[in-house]
């Protein structure tokens, strides 16, 4: 097990290196002098030089990378070009809102997906199954920003059941916080709901056909016991993979949803920064997104082994 973890970590090193190079190069991918892009019309030589110095653009590229990565590792993610605030600080400030949104979206998606997927699998061909399949297809085809807009129109603008926009920190007022997070979380969670349900259903169908399920029945276990004790734990193993990747991809979904709901999280920070040409902030968010995704991948692999005792870490 330890060797496996170590090997996975070693394998991650070159990938992590390439990822950081990629994120670092983001600024240099921009055609022309980044300083000119950042400054727009106001391009006095002093201003350009200042930007160059700020970004370290006057040094050779590899030196710039080494300085940058050294800073990043030590928690210095640079300063925002527009506000001159530390990037790390700006991100941490916005992170709780994104995490709350992501966690609620995930819980919502699992609360819908696992029971529905299980029932759909157990009662194949029933109304529930057809409903589940319908949701699964629609969920991955309808863009989540569009779902968000429809939700706003139906539940907020028309029915006035939920407030539109605005974020209340959870620990400040849990109830209000949940009321505000409900719509964006549903919008964000829909794609995940569809995918998780599809996985739960197909995995459950597969497991229910296996020999050990018949063994459990032969012991006199009730259907409920068979489904929930014998089948579900096995059936959820593949679902864990998908959920893990969804956790890692929280920021990705948040970019769009936060824009729709004017939710003050990391995703919206990224979009605002793109329009403000605040590349250091964009860089920071992308780096965070990539790393949380990579770590989630690793954790998923490890958890998988813990859930499925058959997998050996030889």
């Amino acid at each position: 097990m330890t060797t496996y973890v170590l090997r996975r970590l070693v394998l991650m090193v070159p990938v992590a290196f390439l990822v950081t190079v990629g994120v670092f190069m983001l600024i240099h991918l921009t055609p022309g002098d980044p300083a000119l892009i950042i400054l727009g019309e106001d391009r006095s030589p002093q201003a350009i030089a200042q930007i160059h110095q700020e970004l370290g653009l006057d040094k050779p590229l590899y030196v710039q990378y080494v300085i940058w990565i050294d800073n990043v590792v030590h928690g210095d993610w640079g300063r925002s070009i527009t506000t001159h605030e530390p990037v790390a600080g700006a991100i941490t400030e916005r992170l709780p809102a994104t995490i709350e949104l992501g966690v609620v979206a995930l819980i919502w998606s699992l609360l819908v997906a696992i029971p529905l997927g299980t029932v759909a699998a157990v009662r194949r061909g029933s109304v529930v199954d057809k409903l589940a399949t319908g949701i699964a297809v629609a969920g991955v085809s309808v863009p989540n920003f569009f779902i968000g807009i429809v939700l706003i129109f139906v539940l907020s603008v028309s029915a006035r059941l939920f407030p539109f926009g605005g974020y209340v920190p959870f620990f400040q007022d849990p109830w209000e916080s949940l009321r505000h997070v409900a719509l964006p979380a549903i919008a964000l969670g829909t794609a995940g709901t569809a995918i998780n349900m599809r996985f739960t259903r197909s995995s459950m169908i597969e497991v229910l056909g296996l020999d050990y399920i018949r063994t459990a029945r032969a012991k006199g276990a009730s259907w409920r016991r068979v489904v929930f004790i014998h089948a579900l734990k096995n059936a959820l193993i593949p679902v864990v993979t998908i959920v893990g990747l969804q956790i890692g991809g929280i920021i990705e979904g948040a970019v769009v949803t936060e824009t729709v709901f004017t939710w003050p999280g990391v995703g919206r920070l990224a979009v605002e920064s793109i329009f403000n040409r605040d590349y250091t902030v964009v860089q920071g968010v992308v780096l965070l997104a990539a790393f949380s995704y990579m770590v989630a991948n690793l954790v998923v692999d490890l958890v998988y082994g813990w859930l499925d005792p058959r997998i050996s870490y030889a």
Binding site: D211, G220, N234, D308
Partner: peptide, 28 residues
Amino acid sequence: SEDEMEAIRGTEMAMIFQDPMTSLNPVY
């Protein structure tokens, strides 16, 4: 009924299967 049948299975009549590799639940 199914409940009555469940009460008989495993207590009064039991069954063992062909493939012991797949007849036991891997996660318990």
